[in-house]
Structures are given as C-alpha cells and as structure tokens.
C-alpha cells in the first residue's frame, strides 16, 4: 500500500484495513498525529487529506484517496507555518497532546473560510477535545492566524 504523506510517496505495509492513524504512527514513525480515542470522538488524530480535515483513526489506508498532510508537513521548529506562529504567539499549548489535531482542524477551516466568525470557529472545532481547557487561546490563535493571512502582518 502506498500513500503520499507530506508530499512524499510512502509504503505503509500490506494490511488494507489498517487505519491511517496507525500507518502514520507505527509504520512511518510520524508520531505528531496522536491517538486519543479511536472512535472519532476527540479529534487528536486529525490530518488533512487533500486539504480536508479527517479523523485518521477512522480511515483505512486502502480508502485514502488523496495527499495526506500531518503536523510534520505543516511546518518545522526551524520554519513554523503562520498558523503555528499564531499558536506560539498566543502560547496556546499546555500538555500539548491535542494541539496537532487542533492546528490541522483550524488549518482546514481557514483554507476554506479565511475570515471565520465565532460561530464558524465553534462549528469547525466542536469535534476537537482539549482536557487542559486551552479553548479560549485556540480561538484567539485562529483569529490571529486569519488576520495574518489577511495581511495584517505579524
């Protein structure tokens, strides 16, 4: 089975039923994508497939039709993407375990809706749980990332 992950073709083994989450983590060693619940109830495993946010615990590798982007493909510590810069500016993370999923969910929102209202943010982010309660900062960082993309500058 072959997938395109962060722009690179990757071999992920021969089990078509293997959820994308575990192909990323256990086969490819891309551990930025997190396991939280296994039933699409928490959003920690969110990745992009052709730009759309999906719960990778619920997508079998055989069903992946498109390019996969994980948190490792968004930016790196040396070259943060603007959305990650916004997260750093607002010092969002506490334990940090849910944040890759939050960031990818927010990235998908901003890609389709560059200037989301509070209601848009509510609707888009409702599936992503954070047990540390960083929600107010997540909201602020999404607004900041939207402003950066609108050219408000850093």
């Amino acid at each position: 089975m072959r997938l395109t992950v962060n722009g690179t073709p990757r071999e992920v083994g021969d089990d078509p039923d293997l959820p994308l989450l575990w192909a990323l983590r256990d086969v490819l060693g891309l551990t930025g994508t997190k396991f939280g619940c296994g039933v699409a109830a928490c959003g920690a495993c969110t990745v992009l497939i052709d730009g759309a946010a999906v719960r990778s615990c619920q997508v079998a590798v055989a069903d992946v039709r498109g390019a996969v982007t994980t948190i490792e493909g968004v930016g790196t510590p040396e070259a943060l993407a603007p959305i990650q810069q916004a997260w750093v500016e607002h010092q969002v993370a506490q334990c940090g375990y849910c944040q890759p999923g939050q960031i990818l969910q927010a990235a998908a929102l901003l890609a389709s809706n560059p200037n989301p209202t509070d209601a848009d943010i509510d609707a888009a982010m409702a599936g992503n749980l954070c047990r540390c309660g960083t929600y107010p900062k997540i909201r602020a960082a999404i607004r900041r990332a939207a402003a950066m993309a609108q050219g408000a500058g850093p």
Binding site: L30, G32, Q84, V88, Q91, V92, A93
Partner: peptide, 15 residues
C-alpha cells in the same frame, strides 16, 4: 515564552 511551546505545535514533542 514556554520552553515546550514550539515542540508542541510542530508535533516534535515526545510524549
């Protein structure tokens, strides 16, 4: 600035 922040927003923090 938190010392763990950049790792945690880039998926490079090791849990």
């Amino acid at each position: 600035p938190r010392t763990d922040m950049v790792e945690k927003v880039t998926g490079t923090a090791t849990f």
